[in-house]
């Protein structure tokens, strides 16, 4: 099994973090994994994306031409990456900030940003999206992600772990979009 995921949105949405949490969870499970950031002159408010490949075998290119899954968090990313979805792949879209029109693609959408605001922290939209992704693709176990969150958080910030875990859980519980 090899799963190629492109995660894209705007700087500040936690795009890189979403990818890192997913990649580290795969590492936790002993899988082969690569994480490749777009490392240009990215700034808050600009566009940001990263590529994650998770596999049971050694990984060739960390660069993804065609993705099995796209996680799209804003409109510019939708326009840029939707042509790069594999046949049979799924595109998960943050409908708070992007409105996908392509009917030929397998699109699953939820307003992750609005949902994050309701949870009390707009920044966790990324973790709701990750939860929803794991609901659709069993690439890694939710348990592994929760463990990684605990490891990654700064000491003394249990509040951050809690809100992120709540967000992940909210995503996992969403019905298939």
């Amino acid at each position: 099994m090899t799963e190629k995921i492109i995660i894209a949105g705007s700087g500040g949405q936690g795009i890189m973090l979403l990818g890192k949490v997913l990649a580290e969870s795969a590492m936790e499970e002993g899988k082969f994994v690569t994480w490749l950031p777009a490392y240009g002159a990215e700034v808050r408010g600009g566009t940001a994306h990263c590529m994650v490949v998770i596999s049971d075998d050694e990984i060739g290119s960390p660069y993804i031409d065609r993705a099995d899954t796209l996680i799209i968090m804003n409109k510019p990313s939708l326009n840029r990456f939707s042509p790069r979805l594999n046949k049979g792949g799924i595109m998960i879209v943050n409908s708070s900030l992007a409105d996908p029109k392509e009917s030929s693609l397998n699109i699953k959408k939820y307003p992750f940003t609005d949902m994050a605001i309701k949870l009390g922290n707009i920044k966790v939209a990324n973790m709701i999206a990750l939860g929803f992704y794991l609901n659709n693709r069993k690439t890694v176990k939710v348990k592994s992600v929760l463990k990684v969150m605990e490891k990654m958080a700064t000491e003394g910030r249990e509040d951050l772990i809690k809100i992120n875990q709540e967000a992940l859980d909210a995503g996992v519980k969403l019905k298939d979009g």
């Binding site: 590492m27 082969f32 994994v33 994480w35 490749l36 950031p37 490392y39 960390p62 660069y63």
Partner: peptide, 10 residues
């Protein structure tokens, strides 16, 4: 190269 420098792997 840049790809190798920037990518993360276990």
């Amino acid at each position: 190269d840049g790809m190798l420098g920037q990518m993360m792997e276990p």
